[in-house]
Design a protein around this nucleic acid. Structure first.
Lengths: 132, 132
DNA sequence: CTAAAACCTGACATTGACGTCAGAGGCAAG
DNA sequence: CTTGCCTCTGACGTCAATGTCAGGTTTTAG
């Protein structure tokens, strides 16, 4: 498939795919005229890349780890890297959990008791929260 | 205390503290000559700010939520915001957990004796969430 | 008193993962 | 063959949270 289709199917932009290639995360077969062509497995690969990005890894780190994630092969160095990233993610989860619990506490304290001020008179629930 | 001490004690840079003030996250009493002075509670406040940054909130969002986190008071809007951020963090934790489990599987498959290529299912990728 | 250290404001630089635009070429359909 | 969409490369723009530097004032130590 060509780049537009891969973009559509994997949910990222065409620009992002070219960027991934530039960073050595995603390879493409080039047709005679220079157009990129990807195998079906490209979709899965892009999802994997996105997952690692979402975990806070940089493109450089991803480039280092992708081969051993895909090929299930690792050198001692890459194993150390895998462990380090795993632990970092663990720590991140722990921190996020504490943050969430703290937010829960705030919600509870401002919401339930007679701490004043909080009227659940829902007047405009349509205020969609545009986070992110 | 002055800004240098707060920076040292809270573990962030002086530049960052000035930035927090600029963004309305951190207030300072000014001495006659214009120098910032912070109460002891500033340390805790900066830690709180850092925690929220680490959870992926933007300075604008933090500015909106800090008052009700500190004062335990919330308007219906801020409550909705709190819920939304809490849920976002929950989703982020879930995604990170899946990523960590996948890394664990990779580690196991590349690390165990006869690295017999244990297959790793990845059907559930791309839980959008980003961090920082 | 003086020099060093800390502080001030203001402004430009940086980093990462893209967005966006320009100008040119490729490809299937009518 | 031309129309219209897709793709190419290259390059500059963006955004957020700082880093860094300049040039000047304040505080502190000796």
């Amino acid at each position: 498939m060509r780049i537009g289709e891969l973009a559509a199917r994997s949910g990222v932009s065409v620009r992002a795919l070219r960027y991934y290639e530039e960073q050595g995360l995603l390879e493409a077969n080039r047709s005679g005229s220079g157009q990129r062509h990807y195998p079906e497995s490209g979709v899965e690969r892009v999802h994997l890349i996105q997952m690692l990005y979402a975990a806070g890894l940089s493109s450089r780190t991803i480039a280092e780890l992708l081969p051993c994630v895909e090929a299930k092969v690792s050198t001692p160095e890459s194993r150390a890297r895998l462990f380090a990233e795993r632990d970092r993610i663990d720590a991140q989860i722990a921190g996020l959990t504490r943050t969430r619990d703290r937010l829960d506490a705030v919600i509870a304290s401002t919401g339930s008791p007679a701490s004043g001020c909080t009227y659940i008179a829902d007047r405009d629930v349509a205020t969609q929260a545009s986070s992110r």
